[in-house]
């Protein structure tokens, strides 16, 4: 006989076990509820871009939960938004122990690798996302960008065409298709794509300066500075805080001998990108042409100083209208 069911001690112990079990279930349920609530709270904070608070809540939730998989996934996303790709990937790896990531999560994982400039791995995970959700255009777009960065321009063009098959008037995809064609030396097709992207925008309430900038740069490289200036003026109008748009317009204007306006644009480029030595050089050259010796000397000295301290940094292209968005 292993039990003594009739004994008074047995009843007492049984009751104690039952109470303990009940308490456990109640506590677990409470913890689970708290965990779910913590996740919800974190999501709200993420939506409000309060990543620090979201991070604290998620770390606490992970600490208390026995199945913190979802918290790891969310925390991975928080780290991604904070541009901490390595931490983000670590969290996704922990999360993946509990379940297979969704297509959206694969897109973030891919984007983490993009931040690490590991485009081969990025493409791998973007491919996963497109396999899971072949009708989601964002996966194809991101895969296209990653392939572009890998130098696989043909595949990049295919990806952008997939986006356009789903969203026929997607400005970003059409514009990037142009960039891929440009990289493939298919310049007439590139120009057509940029112009098509611009035409898509005519009926859109929100317009991007990017296709105008890309078209302008293409025309400038093609030795058509007057036409380039026209496109670049639109780029500057739509993206007034993009130093590259101002720089390229300045270069185009200088080439068509509109030196006073070139000066204005290059001054804006320098103000927006003070660490870019080429912009200082170009402005210095314009000052020279205008006979402004002191200003020229100052800009060229800055250029010299910047190139002495590190390799030249190209005028950056901050186009806020082209935010890649959340994967």
């Amino acid at each position: 006989m292993l039990t003594n069911a009739g004994a008074p001690g047995y009843k007492l112990r049984r009751t104690a076990f039952l109470i303990a079990g009940l308490l456990f279930v109640m506590t677990s349920s409470l913890i689970a509820q708290q965990f779910i609530s913590a996740l919800e709270q974190a999501r709200q904070l993420i939506i409000n871009n309060n990543f620090t608070a979201a991070q604290a809540i998620l770390l606490a939730a992970i600490h208390t939960s026995k199945e913190p998989g979802e918290a790891h996934f969310l925390l991975g996303f928080v780290y991604f938004r904070e541009h901490d790709a390595r931490q983000s990937l670590a969290e996704y790896t922990l999360g993946a122990a509990s379940r297979r990531p969704t297509a959206a999560e694969f897109r973030v994982i891919g984007a983490d690798y993009v931040l690490l400039k590991d485009f081969a791995d990025a493409s791998r995970w973007f491919e996963e996302a497109t396999t899971q959700e072949p009708l989601d255009p964002s996966g194809w777009y991101l895969l296209g960008r990653s392939k572009y960065n890998e130098g696989d321009y043909l595949r990049a063009a295919e990806c952008f065409q997939r986006v356009l098959a789903i969203h026929p008037s997607d400005v970003k995809a059409e514009d990037n298709l142009g960039l891929a064609y440009q990289a493939l030396n298919r310049l007439p097709e590139a120009r057509k794509a940029f112009e098509t992207a611009i035409s898509f925008q005519q009926v859109s309430p929100s317009k991007s300066g990017a296709p105008f900038l890309d078209l302008g740069e293409l025309l400038l490289q093609d030795g058509q500075p007057a036409k380039a200036a026209e496109a670049l003026r639109s780029a500057v109008l739509l993206s007034p805080s993009n130093p590259r748009a101002h720089e390229q317009l300045g270069l185009a204007l200088r080439q068509i001998d509109n030196v006073p306006e070139a000066r204005i644009e290059l001054e804006k480029a320098v103000a927006l990108a003070p660490d870019s030595s080429p912009a200082h050089f170009e402005l210095g050259q314009v000052y020279r042409r205008l006979g402004l010796k002191e200003q020229a000397a100052h800009e060229l000295e800055l250029c010299q100083w910047l190139t002495a301290t590190h390799s030249s940094v190209e005028v950056p292209n901050y186009d806020t209208s082209q935010d890649p968005g959340l994967p």
Binding site: A111, L115, A210, R244, S311, E314, N317, D319, D323, P324
Partner: peptide, 30 residues
């Protein structure tokens, strides 16, 4: 700006000319 640039260059529409490791300073050519 550097961080934004990193993301924008990689995912946005921008053609970014990353500094090549060797001694060229231009973009990686086609």
């Amino acid at each position: 700006q550097g961080r934004i640039l990193l993301l924008a260059c990689s995912l946005g529409s921008t053609v970014c000319r990353a500094q090549a490791g060797g001694v060229s300073t231009g973009a990686v050519s086609v």
